[in-house]
């Protein structure tokens, strides 16, 4: 209470000055007084108490009714004081949480880091940008001893921290699948069982898994409800949607995933993405899938990594640099 008492005379002088002169500077100082009180955790009812004391000193003959009314006001302010205390402690907790989340986000980064491999005859570009602190998109490259290249691209439905945790679970389950069982349909079937058993019912994961075998130049793939990618056929200079049916991971227990395959010719491109790419909005307007392809086409002369970066920059500009959803785009091009 000592600081407050010290300020009491100050408050009284200010009040006196204001009553006499109606001076703006006194008002400004009153504002400073309230800010200082907040810094010192002084509650609103304490300020009213100071006001009552100052008033009594200034007007010893204060009518009884006014005095009682001030005490009444003081009682009425007590709840505000409590609410303010609560606000203070929440603010501290929020700061603590914020720093924990940023630690978790950087841990996730470290855990889920994937290295874009060098594969002879393939030009690979990959970009993944989170909309918030933690990325709900996931992509991973696996290079087997027999030179086959596995590519997983996934989106965890349910955002934020729970999604990020589910992602780590997926990554470790995938790491534990033996190398001779790495065909796309088998991978999705195993992951489906993991997700179905372990994840909250409103959460599920979409995933596309592709496997490129350089020995026969074939691309094998399966999809668990993932946003369809595109295939660029260089000979015909045409894009087509990669059709692959399959239900999202984690909804039904014994789901089987069909595996598809296609021969990849020189100059062909395989485009894998998440819905953060196709669900871009410009103001209130959704972009059409053709627009994504037009943009890809306009940068197609660039190396794959430059290509995905330019496409990202295009949509970042289109959305005023504010992503609504995590954005992941991977392009494989078979070199001539």
């Amino acid at each position: 209470m000592s600081t407050l008492n010290m300020d009491l005379s100050n408050y009284r002088d200010l009040l006196k000055q204001y009553i006499r002169t109606q001076d703006e500077t006194a008002l400004y100082q009153a504002e400073q007084f309230s800010k200082l009180s907040m810094q010192q955790n002084i509650s609103p009812e304490e300020i009213i108490n100071v006001h009552i004391q100052a008033l009594q000193e200034l007007y010893p003959e204060l009518p009884e009714g006014i005095k009682s009314s001030m005490n009444f006001l003081l009682e009425a302010m007590i709840s505000y004081g409590l609410a303010y205390q609560e606000f203070q402690s929440l603010r501290e907790q929020q700061l603590a949480l914020k720093s924990e989340i940023s630690v978790a986000a950087s841990m996730q980064q470290t855990l889920l880091t994937t290295v874009k491999p060098e594969v002879e005859g393939l030009d690979i570009g990959a970009i993944s940008i989170p909309a918030n602190q933690m990325n709900g998109d996931y992509h991973h490259f696996v290079q087997n001893d027999d030179n086959k290249l596995g590519i997983a691209i996934a989106d965890v439905i349910g955002k934020g921290i729970p999604a990020a945790l589910a992602m780590s679970m997926i990554k470790y389950s995938m790491d534990s699948i033996p190398e001779n069982r790495m065909d796309p349909s088998n991978i999705l079937e195993s992951l489906n069982r993991v997700v179905e058993r372990n994840v909250d019912p409103s959460m599920f994961i979409t995933m596309f898994y592709g496997l490129y075998d350089p020995s026969n130049e074939k691309f094998y793939y399966s999809s668990a409800g993932h946003e369809p990618g595109f295939y660029y056929n260089a000979a015909e200079d045409k894009f087509e949607e990669i059709e692959a049916r399959g239900v999202v991971l984690g909804v039904t227990r014994d789901t089987e995933y069909r595996q598809y395959e296609r021969k990849v010719n020189a100059g062909d491109m395989i485009i894998m993405l998440t819905d953060g790419v196709t669900e871009c909005r410009q103001g209130d307007r959704f972009i059409e899938p053709e627009e994504v392809l037009d943009v890809i086409k306009s940068y197609m002369h660039l190396p794959a990594q430059k290509l995905v970066e330019q496409v990202y920059k295009h949509f970042e500009r289109l959305q005023d640099f504010h992503l609504r959803d995590d954005f992941t785009l991977i392009i494989l091009r078979k070199e001539v």
Binding site: I157, G158, P201, S202, F204, V248, D275
Partner: peptide, 30 residues
């Protein structure tokens, strides 16, 4: 968006546990 799908998936799971039924009608193309 996909968060909405999550709601319907958990509703579907709940109908299976509780022997009720979920039906969606008149969906727009998108």
């Amino acid at each position: 968006d996909s968060t909405g799908l999550g709601v319907f998936v958990s509703a579907l799971k709940s109908t299976k546990e509780n022997n009720s039924e979920l039906k969606l009608v008149q969906l727009q193309d998108r």
